[in-house]
């Protein structure tokens, strides 16, 4: 399937090129297309493998030499996963609820908090606004794991350890969302804001009735990025009560049970993989529109 795909791409690229721009060298075109195809396979191959493994019966998983594609697809791995999940002493529905709770509140929270802060920073200059904008960019320059120790101390002092808020609140302080929203809102014409002001709207009303509707692609992007992060949360060091743990934690436990669970692990891997990918496919155009406005001004 992959090879066919690459061939089709090559063909299309080639026929497309001829009518496009004049200053193109066909030899270079072909080299670039081959390069793209090779790396496309490199990128896609492990994902195709995951997909196929999820449907492989046990005798195909342990086969020498191993085959990429499944010959006799079966749903056994998914059935086994269902049996294991059904036997766990915390009901699966509880894990699913936890993940949905964390993902929903965290995503909603970050959209509201980031967009509220992004509007004034994008459209006005006032004491403190420049410093804040600078700090937001600097915060992108390091990974949040470097503050993990004081973060743990702060979260335990506030009394949030072993609650879902320990995962949600720190996520809300991430600056990538504010950064994306701000860059997008800058492009909204000032005249629209002035029109609202003439109609007597205050800043809150302008934010809600003008900024939010017009920056929809930006907050959809933000939803996707946040969703991906929170969906994958395992609870880590913050949540130790079993019935508060997210779905991902339960699934990881199943995978780590070793070689006997290889088939089930394949089913789990496919489930974990599919959700973010589907979400991205559905919203791709919004994401690209938002990223077009993104950047650090030189």
């Amino acid at each position: 399937m992959n090879d066919v795909m690459a061939k089709i791409n090559l063909k299309k690229l080639y026929s497309n090129k001829l009518k496009k721009r004049t200053n193109r060298n066909i030899a270079v075109d072909i080299i670039l297309a081959v390069l793209l195809g090779l790396f496309g396979l490199f990128s896609l191959w492990p994902l195709v493998l995951i997909t196929n493994n999820a449907f492989k019966p046990l005798n195909e998983i342990f086969l020498f030499p191993p085959r990429l594609f499944v010959h006799n697809p079966t749903l056994n791995n998914f059935r086994d996963l269902g049996v294991i999940m059904g036997n766990s002493w915390v009901p699966v529905s509880r894990y699913i609820f936890n993940t949905l709770f964390i993902t929903f509140l965290g995503t909603l929270g970050i959209v509201i908090v980031s967009s509220m802060a992004a509007y004034p920073l994008a459209k006005y200059t006032f004491p403190g606004s420049k410093v804040m904008s600078k700090l937001v960019v600097y915060a992108l320059m390091f990974n949040s794991t470097v503050t993990v120790i004081p973060n743990y101390i702060i979260i335990s002092r506030i009394g949030l350890v072993d609650t879902h808020w320990a995962l949600i609140l720190p996520a809300l302080s991430g600056t990538l969302g504010l950064f994306l929203m701000k860059n997008f809102i800058v492009q909204i014409p000032d005249s629209m804001l002035e029109a609202a002001k003439i109609d007597g709207a205050n800043e809150y009303k302008t934010y809600w009735t003008i900024i939010m509707p017009l920056s929809k692609p930006a907050w959809i992007t933000l939803i996707i990025f946040t969703f991906q992060g929170l969906w994958g949360a395992t609870g880590g060091t913050f949540i130790y009560t079993e019935k508060l743990k997210p779905l991902n934690f339960a699934l990881m436990q199943i995978i780590q049970a070793g070689i006997a669970r290889t088939g089930v692990a394949g089913a789990v891997a496919l489930l974990l993989l599919l959700v973010p990918i589907i979400v991205f496919i559905v919203s791709q155009s919004n994401v690209i529109e938002t990223m077009a406005s993104t950047g650090i001004k030189g």
Binding site: S43, L47, Q228, N248, I255, A265, L272, L273, F280
Partner: peptide, 15 residues
Amino acid sequence: LVFYAPSISGGAFMI
């Protein structure tokens, strides 16, 4: 999608 998918696939790197 092909190039971006691995980065959003969470624990899929375990493959």
